[in-house]
Nucleic acid binder design. Structure first.
Lengths: 173, 173
DNA sequence: GCATATATGTCAACAACACTGACATATTCG
DNA sequence: CGAATATGTCAGTGTTGTTGACATATATGC
C-alpha cells in the first residue's frame, strides 16, 4: 500500500503545466473511448451501453440507484439503455432479497462476453502505457488521477474490487 | 527533460490494475467536465463549445482543418458550434495569408474571457491534484497519460505551447 | 396499521452533439 | 486549365442527456 498522504510540496505550477494537464485528459479520453465506440456502433449500441455493462460487471448485483450514483445521469436516461440491454439479453434483473423494491443487476454470459470484448482494447492500451512508463510512473498516475476525482468518491474508486462486495456503503449526493 | 524511453519493465499487471485504470479515467473525466458543463449550460452552450474555445485559445490562428484533426469530429458538427461562437462574438475568423482558402481562428476578448472562466475550475482541480500528489507523481502521471494517447499525437501534446507557433506540422489521419 | 418515504419504471417532449450524404464556392497546384 | 484542397451548407438521422409528471411496490416510522 503506497503512502497516500498529501505532499503539500511547494510545487511551482506554470500555466503551461496546467494546460498540459487539461490536454492530456482530453486526448487520453478521446483515444481511450474511440475503439470501443466503433465496436459498439456495429451492434447498434453506444457509449452509454458500455458504461452500464462495465459497471454491472464490476459490481455484480449492483442496484439501479447505485449505478445512477456512479454514472451521474438521470434514471430516465439510464432506463432507456438498461431496458435495451435487458431486452437483448445482456443484463438480467433480480428482485433484491433484503429490500424487494430493488432490482439487482448482473451480466448474462452474453453480457460478460461483450464487456470483455469492449474493454479488451482499453486494457491493452492501459497495459502498454503502464509498461512503457514503469511502476513508479504508474503509482504517480494513480495518485494524480485520484486527486482529480471528487473527494467523496475517492475511497470507493481506490478500493480493490474484492474488498467491495455489493457496494456496501451507499453514498448519497 | 525527463527520460521518456520506454521502460520495458516486466510489470506484473493484474486484472484489477487494469480495471482501476479504466475507472480512474472514467471518474476523473466525469468530475473534470462537470463544472464547466454547468457553467456552459447557463449561457446556452455545451461541451463542444468549450472544446472549440479552448483549442482556439491554445493555438491562436489555428485553421479549421487543424481544429477538426484535434477534435476528431466532422466538419458539419464543428461548423454548427463554430458558427454560433462566431455569431455571438467569441471567435473571429480571418482569411489565411499564405493560403487564402483557410480561415484562421482566434478568440475575441469576450472569447478569451469565457475560456478563462471555463478552464479556471479545471486548472484549480489539476493544481490541487498535482500539489497533493507531488512532483514525482506528476511526472509519472504525464508519462502514463502520454502513453494512453494515440502514438501519432504524442509529440504534439507533449510540445510546449511556446514551441508550437501555428501548429507547424499538420499530421493527417 | 396507516401515512410517508423510497426504489424503480414509464410516458412525453426537448436539446446537444455526433453522424452520413450531397452539393457549392473559392483557391491552390501541377 | 483541370484536379485537388479548404471550407461551408442543407437535410436527415441517431444516441444520450435533460425536465416534468405520474405510477407501483415496498419499506419504515410513529
Amino acid at each position: 500500500m503506497p503512502d497516500l498522504r498529501p505532499g503539500l510540496q511547494h510545487l511551482y505550477l506554470r500555466d503551461e503545466d496546467l494546460r498540459l494537464g487539461i490536454e492530456l485528459l482530453f486526448y487520453a479520453y478521446r483515444d481511450f473511448t474511440a475503439e470501443p465506440d466503433r465496436m459498439l456502433e456495429e451492434i447498434g449500441f453506444g457509449r452509454a451501453h458500455h458504461r452500464a455493462i462495465y459497471f454491472v460487471g464490476r459490481y455484480p448485483g449492483i442496484n439501479v440507484g447505485e449505478l445512477l450514483a456512479i454514472l451521474r445521469i438521470t434514471k430516465q436516461s439510464l432506463s432507456r439503455v438498461l431496458g435495451e440491454l435487458v431486452r437483448k439479453g445482456y443484463i438480467l434483473q433480480r428482485q433484491g432479497t433484503s429490500d424487494r423494491r430493488q432490482r439487482r443487476l448482473e451480466l448474462t454470459e452474453q453480457g460478460a462476453a461483450l464487456e470483455r470484448k469492449l474493454s479488451e482494447n482499453q486494457r491493452r492500451r492501459i497495459a502498454a502505457a503502464y509498461r512503457a512508463a514503469g511502476p513508479a510512473a504508474v503509482e504517480g498516475f494513480r495518485r494524480v488521477m485520484l486527486g482529480l476525482i471528487d473527494e467523496r468518491d475517492r475511497r470507493k474508486v481506490a478500493a480493490e474490487p474484492a474488498k467491495t462486495p455489493p457496494l456496501a456503503a451507499k453514498q448519497r449526493a
